[in-house]
Simulated scan of single mutants.
Amino acid sequence: MRLRRITLQHFRNIPLAELAFEGRQQFFVGDNGQGKTNLLEAAGFVSALRSFRTADTRVLIAQGQTEAALACEFEHEKFGVTKLVIKLRPGGKEVWCDGEKVTRLGDYLGRFPTVVFSSQDQQLVRGAPGLRRRWLDFTLAAMDTAYLRALQTYHKALAERNALLKRGAGGGELGAFEKPLATAAAELQVKREAGVAELAAHVATAYAQIADDAEQAGLRLAPDITAENAHAWLGVFERGRARDAQFRTTLAGPHRDDLLFTLNGRTAKDYGSEGQQRSLVLSLQLAQVSFFRARMGVEPLLLADDVLGELDPERRKRFWATLGESRQVIATGTSLPDAELGSWEVFRVAAGAFAKETTL
């Protein structure tokens, strides 16, 4: 998949930008705070209709404006030349694909896969479990509408159960929401275990390429609790009522699952060096690329936000080699990339404006 044109209006600090891309590598260069990452954020928004930086789409609308919009034109392996229009308003969003309004997220997810490489991704290893769950849920839901439905059902039932716990409801009322909660929990458990096993193989392969087989990387699901089936999950929630009532929230379930990264069998968070952790995060994103391509038969758009300067020269060279020579890469930085990373179409960014320069 290739992004050939993108138009932004009132998107963060970008009043209006109309950009056409040639070739497969584009680089946006400029000082920090000028709008480079905002452009990548807009390009990445097409994947799941959400930002990789914030859960609140209202902040994407420029201050003082009532609406933001972005339009993209893709060359797509399955759909040919495809045009996408997205309008963002404080109360929600509207999406049109080739002139037809998209009304169900499940029908849209997976069409336009993007993978973001960001300097902030280091928190996927070091940060809180919620960051890793969010990444995992996005990755699996983007390729599996059944996973998305189970996730939505689970969180809806969880919110209702928690609301009842807060007002001291009895077992009868709680039971009405525990049944769909248990069914969705069982499905999420099965799909997460299978998805993580598939992703783990891709992570190991990517890490070996980046680190030159220096150590073996691993990835596994670290569930908060496991149960055999929906009936067993129902028992988990029923037995937890007294404790949950005391704390006024549901304390056990898939909403507390985590991902565990390892290097040579030891936890990367505790024993990995900064360089190893950075390589592991890049391997996780490369695994996402391979996972999307294997599931959808579509090459994802790769968005690299100021990551090139954080690797030593040898690992940077290996990382770039793993991207291949056919995928489109849109990257940002405060200085131009090394010549060894190939030919780039360069755009200078200042105060939300973009000026094309001579191709490197």
Rank of each mutant, 00 (worst) to 15 (best):
S279A: 15
F138T: 09
H202C: 12
D56C: 05
D98M: 04
E18T: 10
G44P: 01
H76R: 03
Y147T: 03
G265N: 08
L219A: 08
F354I: 04
L282G: 07
L40K: 06
A185K: 06
F347S: 01
L181R: 07
R126A: 11
Q34N: 11
K101S: 14
L148H: 08
F28Y: 02
K156A: 08
A184T: 07
L40Q: 10
E325H: 14
V196T: 07
F319I: 05
S283Q: 07
K78D: 05
G106T: 13
L301W: 02
I330Y: 03
Q276H: 00
E238I: 09
K93H: 03
L165Y: 00
T7E: 09
M1V: 05
A217H: 06
D224Y: 11
N264G: 15
G170H: 01
E310K: 03
L199F: 14
L84V: 15
Q26V: 11
W96L: 11
T145H: 06
H10R: 14
E299R: 15
F21S: 04
L323G: 09
D258N: 03
A353G: 02
V307L: 13
A71M: 09
V349G: 00
L360Y: 06
I210T: 02
L124A: 06
A142Q: 15
K156S: 14
L234E: 07
P313W: 02
F27P: 14
G324I: 09
E100C: 08
W233A: 02
K36W: 04
Q9C: 10
L286Y: 01
